[in-house]
Design a protein around this nucleic acid. Sequence first.
DNA 1: CTAAAAGTTTAGACAAATCTAAAAAATATT
DNA 2: AATATTTTTTAGATTTGTCTAAACTTTTAG
Lengths: 217, 217
Amino acid sequence: MQSFTEENYLKIIYHLSSDTDVAVQTNAIAEKMGTKAASVTDMIKKLADKQLIIYQKYQGVKLTDTGRRTAINIVRKHRLWEVFLVEKLSFKWDEVHDIAEELEHINSSELIERLDEFLAFPKNDPHGDPIPDKDGKFDSATFIKLNKLKTNEQGLVMGVSEHSSAFLKHLEKLGLTLGKLVKVTDITDFDGSIELLVESKKINISREVAKHILIKA
Amino acid sequence: MQSFTEENYLKIIYHLSSDTDVAVQTNAIAEKMGTKAASVTDMIKKLADKQLIIYQKYQGVKLTDTGRRTAINIVRKHRLWEVFLVEKLSFKWDEVHDIAEELEHINSSELIERLDEFLAFPKNDPHGDPIPDKDGKFDSATFIKLNKLKTNEQGLVMGVSEHSSAFLKHLEKLGLTLGKLVKVTDITDFDGSIELLVESKKINISREVAKHILIKA
DNA sequence: CTAAAAGTTTAGACAAATCTAAAAAATATT
DNA sequence: AATATTTTTTAGATTTGTCTAAACTTTTAG
């Protein structure tokens, strides 16, 4: 078994490499962990000793199959707990991240399988992210970022790639929640900010915000 | 905020002193924590510095009001999670202790208040132990230990004072679960073992087992 | 293609929680 | 009351995860 810290390193490495599958750099990990590069070097040596990652000096790290399986399991737990918090305890989608961050380290596969069943085997968490099943399999439907849509194109909001409370509350206020149909009506030349139609209401979002909204065309 | 370890020390000190309110000894803590006396000395100095306990060298420790409040809050969380596991996730009463031992350290009062509400504000956990409310108040109904009953006396099973899986499974097998009416039909001279009537079935338990069964006469 | 900048690792140190062995205090025994 | 036993504390060491400062690689830019 791993410590909470080791689990957090694995999870971060997983998130940093899941798109690209390219080696993850020490500094990138340090930034996400909120530690210094030197500390990361120490830890990745330890994880490499345990065969959870592959590490070559100065070349960054990649997850091994075992490491990836472990990381995905943590992600599974995180997302299931988020569903629980929203569906059963009536938390808002912007309130659950930090609590799930603690709950994800609770160590009982029996607990997680029963929680999954209690929640009726949800496929996605409150932010649209897919929930891996107990074998680590999940839909990897790739969505388009909203900033890629052109004027007059439209699609459904399927997820977000940023989980901060500030961001999610902002979307909430704009009515930009999961399942909504959005249509791009204009893109400003000046700063690229985007004008949208959501439920016949016209709203304006920055390019930065649009980047974190995932769309099914 | 405290570390998990500090929380565990407080909880153990609370359990060791809640009956008697007498100073708790270093060795007693060490035994419950599964550590050595020397480690306990180090930790109680730290807890004393934080004003969570009162410590005088060689004289054991007592909780301060703050320390007791903290300990009771951990107990509250533990027991609420146990109710959740049994009522919502269909765990058996002998399976929940270790998982609740982890969950009790999750740090969010919002989470606990919502969980309490979700469970409809239960008064007791699956072993009959009272659940403190959010102000730390709870029924301190004191029950009689089953070994104190004399022949022909009877009462209701209201709780157990031992939470090991082995013990609870044993009770389960005997049909000695919460709410059952039991009547002492005989007490063996030889070893003090007790013959009981439970739902018109005659069973036999050792004195040691009887000590851990709490009865309302 | 070399020099500067950026990124990474090493060395040595620290805090938390634990340990063993030895010393000191409290308690029990004769 | 003196001694033996038990309990507790101290001293010094270890492990985990972190740090700073300095050294070393790799990458970038002129």
